[in-house]
Structures are given as C-alpha cells and as structure tokens.
Simulated scan of single mutants.
Amino acid sequence: MPQNNPAAPACANLGLAIQEIAPMTVLARVYPERRSVTHLFESDFYRMLIDRRTEERVAHMIRLYFGNAADWRYAHDFYLPTGALYLTPEPHQNGYIPEDDLSFGLSLTRRIAIADGSY
C-alpha cells in the first residue's frame, strides 16, 4: 500500500502536491513511459497546455506514489478531487476524450486504487 511504501512521497496528500506545481489540475493522465507523455486536464474537461518538465514531474509523483498498484504498461488517470487512480479508457470508449462525455472516464469498474491506500 502507498502509505507503507518507503519510496512514496512524504506528502500525505498527492493531489495537493500536484496542485502546487500545476494549480488548475483536476485530472492527470499518465501514459506508459515508452510514450513519454502526460496530459493534465482542468475542471472544464480541457487539456492544460503546460511545459514538459511539469508533466514529467507529475507523472513521476503518481507512479512513485502508487508503485505496483497499477500496471504502468497502460495509461492511467489520477483524479485529484477523490485521490483515485483509474485505468484510462481505450480510445474507442467513453471518457477517453474527457470533454466528450464529461466523465473523465471515471468508472468504478476502472478504479485501481485510492491515494489513502484503498484498493
């Protein structure tokens, strides 16, 4: 569990730590490392235009915090208001493009973990 992971960030609230470096972020979509891309979304469901270094830092924080709870070969969405990590919908599914269905793809069936250590 993340709170028992000595490599986990010392910050008790991952969402707040992310908002310190990217204040308007509501959702962070972390793609597999081989794609070398991360998207950050605002509450209006549109992608934020932010520098690559910040994207990489956010992705690193999420991967470090959740560690082995997720299969990082697949894209995942971290929803800051709830602290929940979800498996990202596939391109043909609702939620892949957040503004299409206004859900961010946050289906309980796709939830992987919650930042407080729940699974």
Score class of each variant (00 low, 15 high):
residue 4 N to W: 02
residue 6 P to L: 05
residue 7 A to L: 05
residue 10 A to M: 12
residue 14 L to Y: 01
residue 15 G to Q: 12
residue 18 I to C: 02
residue 19 Q to W: 04
residue 21 I to Y: 01
residue 24 M to P: 07
residue 26 V to Y: 13
residue 27 L to S: 06
residue 31 Y to G: 00
residue 33 E to Q: 09
residue 33 E to F: 03
residue 36 S to K: 12
residue 36 S to L: 07
residue 37 V to E: 08
residue 39 H to L: 01
residue 41 F to E: 02
residue 42 E to V: 02
residue 42 E to I: 03
residue 43 S to H: 12
residue 44 D to F: 04
residue 47 R to L: 11
residue 48 M to T: 04
residue 49 L to C: 11
residue 49 L to M: 10
residue 56 E to W: 05
residue 57 R to K: 15
residue 62 I to C: 06
residue 63 R to D: 02
residue 64 L to R: 08
residue 64 L to S: 07
residue 66 F to D: 00
residue 68 N to C: 01
residue 68 N to M: 00
residue 71 D to I: 10
residue 72 W to K: 10
residue 74 Y to M: 09
residue 76 H to W: 10
residue 77 D to E: 07
residue 82 T to C: 05
residue 82 T to L: 09
residue 83 G to S: 08
residue 83 G to D: 10
residue 85 L to M: 10
residue 87 L to G: 07
residue 88 T to H: 14
residue 88 T to R: 08
residue 88 T to Q: 09
residue 89 P to D: 01
residue 90 E to H: 11
residue 90 E to W: 11
residue 92 H to F: 14
residue 92 H to Y: 13
residue 92 H to C: 10
residue 93 Q to G: 00
residue 94 N to F: 14
residue 97 I to E: 15
residue 97 I to V: 15
residue 98 P to C: 01
residue 100 D to N: 14
residue 100 D to K: 14
residue 101 D to E: 13
residue 103 S to I: 05
residue 107 S to T: 07
residue 107 S to W: 10
residue 111 R to Q: 15
residue 113 A to S: 11
residue 113 A to R: 10
residue 114 I to H: 13
residue 114 I to N: 15
residue 115 A to L: 04
